[in-house]
Simulated assay, not measured.
Amino acid sequence: MGGVDFDRLFFGRHLVFVEGKTEMDLLKIMGCPEKIIMDCGGKTNMPTEIKVLMPPCMDNDPRMLILRDKDGGENNVSIIQSFEHHINNLLKESETPRQTFQQHRDFENLYTMDVPDANFRAALHIAAPPSIEDLYGKQFVSETIDGYILALAMNGNVLKEFAKRAKITSNDINPEDALRWAVCKGVPGVADKAEITFDQTKDYLGVYMAMSKFLTVKRSENEDVFSGIVINMAKKHARDKFQETFRSVSTALKFIEIGPKMEDRDESTEKRLESRLSLSDRP
């Protein structure tokens, strides 16, 4: 991992930890300030990032959010316990009794921790993508942010926009249904006959990119990441679907008080971060 970009640590009391760029793009589109989003470069780096970046924030009514995928063989309990351990280590200096995450009443994959005595709040969001009608019953080895992107991509309005851009035509069915069939049935069917397993949502997203001519259709400089285009397109052309798909993420952001109140820069916390961290501090 590289050194800390202190200019990005603009808001001292809020930090959001994500596995990669897709989550970062999503959060920015949802209105989360980029400066508080920490791209950990994978789930294995998250504990280290939390251990290094959170302590300087602990005296300033800290708020933290963790967006975590769930890989094959993992379960929510083990993921929750791991982050509880790291958070309780952060709370030791305030002599706070051991804390545990509580499952949110509306979302089985969202867990929250509110510690009034330490003025501390944390939320843990574990990926649980919505089911996709055209892939009903399909089992994937992992539950990831890509599952949410695929669910948005398979929305009729989004399919229609991609089909239009790719100039897809068909004599038998409308263009969006032609694209839907190619992504969910056509190419996967050929792969199955060749004994090529489609067991990750990335497999279907790759087919979607190819069938919609994503790599050949002219795009602007800001449209170079497929997931970002899908998210933006859904927000514009399928707003209800977008809000429904990411309602649990939105709820997590609200729990840690991401909103207009975050306008003021916390220079004192930023200085503590700068004095505490340096390139030599990082593993």
Rank of each mutant, 00 (worst) to 15 (best):
F6W: 04
R8L: 11
F10T: 12
G12K: 00
V16H: 00
E19N: 03
D25Q: 12
L26I: 01
M30S: 07
C32N: 04
C32Y: 05
P33N: 01
P33A: 04
E34I: 06
I37L: 05
P47E: 01
P56W: 00
N60K: 13
I66N: 05
L67H: 01
G72D: 15
E74D: 15
N75S: 10
V77H: 09
Q81K: 15
S82Y: 10
E84K: 00
H85Y: 12
N88R: 00
L90F: 01
E93I: 11
E95Q: 15
T96C: 15
P97I: 05
P97R: 04
P97T: 02
T100H: 11
T100R: 06
F101N: 02
L110V: 15
Y111C: 05
T112D: 13
V115N: 05
D117R: 15
N119A: 13
L124S: 05
H125G: 04
H125S: 11
P129G: 08
P130M: 01
P130W: 01
P130H: 00
S131N: 12
I132Q: 04
L135S: 06
G137N: 01
Q139M: 10
V141M: 06
I145K: 02
D146R: 02
D146M: 02
Y148H: 09
A153R: 04
A153E: 02
G156F: 08
I168H: 05
S170K: 05
I173K: 10
P175L: 04
D177H: 12
A178K: 13
L179D: 08
R180F: 02
V183K: 01
G189Y: 08
A194D: 14
E195D: 15
T197R: 11
T197E: 15
D203Y: 03
Y204R: 01
L205F: 09
L205P: 10
G206M: 03
V207W: 07
V207Q: 10
M209Y: 02
V217I: 14
S220I: 00
E223M: 04
E223I: 00
D224E: 12
S227P: 07
G228T: 01
I229K: 14
V230E: 02
I231A: 05
I231M: 15
K235S: 09
K236V: 08
F242S: 07
Q243P: 00
Q243T: 06
T245E: 08
T245F: 08
T251W: 09
K254Y: 12
M262P: 02
E263K: 13
R265G: 06
D266M: 07
E267L: 10
S268V: 12
K271V: 14
R272D: 03
S275F: 10
L277C: 12
S278D: 09
S280I: 09
S280Q: 11
R282F: 14
